[in-house]
């Protein structure tokens, strides 16, 4: 069966969803990810959904689940890159994913995780403000 790959980067796990999500695949991701968090002791999980064209109530529930389960396993999950059309549709659907952390892109998601996990930052990657 097809599975979504989970990459490990130091203390973090990185998942990029690039296929059409279906229910079994989403369930498998939930299982794999929680297993990997427990096994690696990862403190942060980043899920990039910028390629996802829709998130329906099932996928929404899985995202919510992963976020909640990872919290219990002492890891933070950040969902990054949700498309505007997907966000509007989710809200209309009645799914607001309370408690799920979000960021605009992988870089901002990573920065958020570092702040949450409090690992010393390497270098200065904050945007320099210019007026």
């Amino acid at each position: 069966m097809e599975r979504i790959p989970i990459l490990r980067m130091g203390d973090y796990l990185l998942v990029t969803i690039q296929v059409d999500m279906h229910d079994r695949l989403a369930m498998a991701l939930q299982d794999d990810l929680t297993a990997r968090i427990a096994k690696t002791g990862a403190q942060g999980v980043l899920i990039d959904i910028s390629s996802l064209e829709i998130v329906d109530s099932f996928i929404g529930r899985i995202i919510s689940n992963i976020s909640g389960m990872s919290r219990i396993l002492d890891a933070h999950t950040v969902i990054v890159g949700m498309q505007p059309a997907v966000a509007i549709t989710l809200v209309e659907l009645g799914l607001t994913l309370p408690g799920v952390l979000t960021a605009l892109d992988v870089e901002k998601g990573m920065a958020l995780l570092r702040r949450l996990v409090d690992v010393p930052e390497e270098g200065d990657d904050e945007d320099n403000a210019e007026f």
């Binding site: 064209e53 329906d56 059309a85 509007i88 549709t89 659907l93």
Partner: peptide, 13 residues
């Protein structure tokens, strides 16, 4: 795009 996304999501449900 927003309307297509809404319709496809409804279809999925």
């Amino acid at each position: 795009l927003v309307d297509v996304t809404k319709l496809v999501t409804a279809c999925s449900e």
